[in-house]
């Protein structure tokens, strides 16, 4: 039966809450409404107002109380309604959620999952299309995951909730309606490993979240040109699967990082650095990037010019092959 990414995550939340009555789900409009994207649909009906509840409209409060609840012994899942509204919670995430286990010398663990719909491509009004993953990946103490398929939407969500470390779970909102015939529940590879979605021999495309599908489409189009692209879905942005990245570059000798986030100090910068540190002699060409521009996220009518797409990826592929 076909299942969308949103349904897969929803099912994962249900199954996790069924399996462990210490799991709580809360945030803005996640109760009766089921979340603005309906990802928490049915949870309050099923588990009651104590286990799935609407909070006051205050993001720092949501994360700060999640920390207190985790210290008490709960496993909170907190939803941030949109990427652009995580910033009020920045201090709680960076100064406490990420650091408290370390500050306490391991006596405190904070099994908190923060779900964040992120990225553009849905014609949204400003502040609703951001890609803030670098902030979280840069912050020691957080794990950062992002599924690119409904199967991973289910399995990685379960893993995030089971994790004793805090997890930022980035949900590619433009792929919420992406379908697959996954049979849930489903298990996938360990969350900290990247997965080769398509094998190829000429160029490696490193992508994650919303760009996995775009990269797959680019690989299809490239095949028509006679280019063989390998598509690597990173899945985990912190920690980053350096081994998997290096192994792919050793096979192809060429690497392109694809993400929606702006280029400067985006994940691509880190990935390029790791590749040149560890696979310098395997490289046939410099590592290139197909990303959003270093401007604020554009108005909806302009986002098609801003977001990396098949053409931008193929342009980088061509440049890489020219070396």
């Amino acid at each position: 039966m076909a299942v969308t990414l949103a349904q897969a995550i929803n099912q994962a939340l249900k199954d996790a809450m069924e399996a462990n009555d210490r799991v709580l789900m809360f945030g803005e409009d996640v109760g009766k409404l089921g979340g603005v994207f309906r990802v928490t649909d049915g949870l309050q009906d099923r588990f009651g107002e104590q286990r799935c509840f609407d909070t006051p409209l205050a993001e720092s409060g949501i994360i700060g109380t999640a920390i207190g609840l985790a210290m008490y012994g709960y496993r909170p899942i907190a939803e941030m309604q949109f990427d652009g509204f995580t910033y009020p919670a920045f201090e709680q995430i960076v100064s406490h959620l990420a650091k408290m286990p370390n500050r306490s010398r391991g006596t405190v663990t904070l099994p908190v999952t923060i779900r964040i719909p992120y990225g553009g491509g849905i014609g949204a009004v400003e502040h609703h299309s951001e890609s803030p993953e670098t902030y979280w990946a840069h912050t020691a103490g957080l794990k950062v995951m992002t599924p690119g398929t409904p199967e991973d939407g289910y399995a990685m969500m379960r893993a995030a909730i089971d994790s004793d470390d805090p997890v930022i779970f980035l949900e590619p909102k433009r792929r919420y309606w992406m379908k697959s015939d996954a049979d849930l529940p489903v298990e996938t590879e360990p969350t900290h490993r990247s997965v080769v979605r398509r094998e190829g021999s000429d160029v490696s495309l490193f992508c994650y979240g919303p760009m996995v599908r775009t990269a797959m489409e680019a690989a299809d189009a490239a095949a028509d040109e006679g280019w063989s692209l390998e598509v690597v879905d990173l899945r985990s942005l912190a920690p980053l699967d350096t081994q998997g990245i290096v192994a792919s570059v050793q096979r192809t000798g060429r690497a392109i990082v694809v993400h929606e986030a702006s280029s400067t100090l985006g994940m691509g910068a880190e990935i390029a650095a790791r590749i040149q540190e560890r696979a310098f002699y395997h490289l046939e060409a410099p590592v290139l990037r197909a990303t959003g521009f270093d401007t604020p996220y554009p108005p909806a009518k302009l986002e098609e010019y801003w977001l990396p797409d098949v053409d931008r990826i193929l342009d980088r592929v061509e440049r890489s092959l020219e070396y």
Binding site: M71, S95, H96
Partner: peptide
């Protein structure tokens, strides 16, 4: 913190108030 039910001293001003509230909610 669990030995004496006394949280870590918090330097970012006021942030610990939320931890108390979450704890109390639990």
């Amino acid at each position: 913190p669990y030995a004496h039910n006394f949280g870590l001293m918090s330097i970012p001003i006021g942030t610990q108030a939320l931890h108390a509230t979450g704890f109390g909610m639990g």
